[in-house]
């Protein structure tokens, strides 16, 4: 049986791991290669590296770090941040990244998703979407969540799927940094309306939140940062509790 994935996310700035609380007020949580190795040993199913400085400042994700991670880590990982062309993706995959995630650049030029899917296959194209619920609507935001667009989360996600996205990484800006749980209603709707895997992101504070993301949100994977980086939740404990809740996990 395909298991639900637990994905620590390492936000990267200047080669170091950071975690933005509501995308502001960064805290340093260590060396990405060391953290990645630790997470592989602790039972993480996958890792995501997001160069959070990339979109805001036009900085490219450091290929050196990707190469080092690929050398030392025996689980898959995704790299995101500032990716806007076939050449960017080609360089990352050649350094050993398994998947890339695109966000603002795909909103600016949706054909990018088609180009990447045609060239490298859908399986390595994750479309990351930051969205904020304003009244009843989920509005997609860009540039690290700072600029609202006119796009609706669900229609944009469906378009991304149609264009060849292999999975959707949905971050709820209402939930991110709150530790009050994932945006389960929106997740469930995404999972219902799309036929590609959905990664839940934003709001993890305790183990029950992960149970809910899988049971109520029907997410295929759940991503979190600070609860893992600061050892507030151990991945082994989390997976044991998920299993006790009859959720398929790799233990």
């Amino acid at each position: 049986m395909l298991t639900k994935r637990i994905i620590p996310c390492l936000d990267i700035k200047d080669g170091r791991t950071v975690k933005g609380i509501n995308f502001k007020g960064l805290r340093d949580a260590g060396d990405p290669v060391e953290l990645a190795k630790q997470y592989a040993l602790k039972g993480a199913d996958e890792l995501v590296f997001l160069d959070i400085s990339a979109t805001l400042e036009g900085r490219k994700t450091m290929l050196d770090m990707v190469l080092k991670v690929a050398e030392h880590v025996n689980i898959p990982f995704t790299v995101g941040g500032g990716i806007s062309s076939i050449a960017d993706v080609d360089a990352l995959l050649k350094c050993g990244a398994d998947k890339v995630s695109v966000n603002s650049s795909a909103i600016k030029r949706p054909e990018l998703i088609n180009e990447l899917a045609n060239k490298f296959g859908s399986q390595c194209v994750t479309v990351a979407i930051d969205a904020k619920q304003i009244n009843e609507d989920w509005i997609v935001h860009v540039a690290g969540g700072s600029i609202p667009t006119k796009l609706d989360l669900f229609s944009w996600a469906k378009e991304a799927e149609k264009r060849g996205a292999g999975e959707i990484l949905f971050t709820s800006m209402n939930n991110d940094g709150t530790k009050d749980g994932f945006a389960n209603d929106a997740l469930a709707k995404l999972s219902r309306e799309l036929n590609i895997p959905i990664i839940a992101s934003g709001g993890a504070g305790n183990i029950q939140h992960f149970v809910d993301a899988f049971q109520k949100g029907n997410a295929d994977a759940a991503l979190a940062a600070s609860v893992f980086h600061f050892a507030e939740i151990e991945i082994k404990d989390l997976k044991q509790d998920l299993k006790a809740n009859k959720i398929a996990v790799r233990l």
């Binding site: 395909l2 298991t3 199913d45 292999g166 036929n195 895997p197 790799r250």
Partner: peptide, 13 residues
């Protein structure tokens, strides 16, 4: 078939 999510992505036995 579209009865499952495609692609299959993750850890299976």
């Amino acid at each position: 078939e579209n009865t499952v999510k495609v692609p299959q992505m993750g850890w299976n036995t």
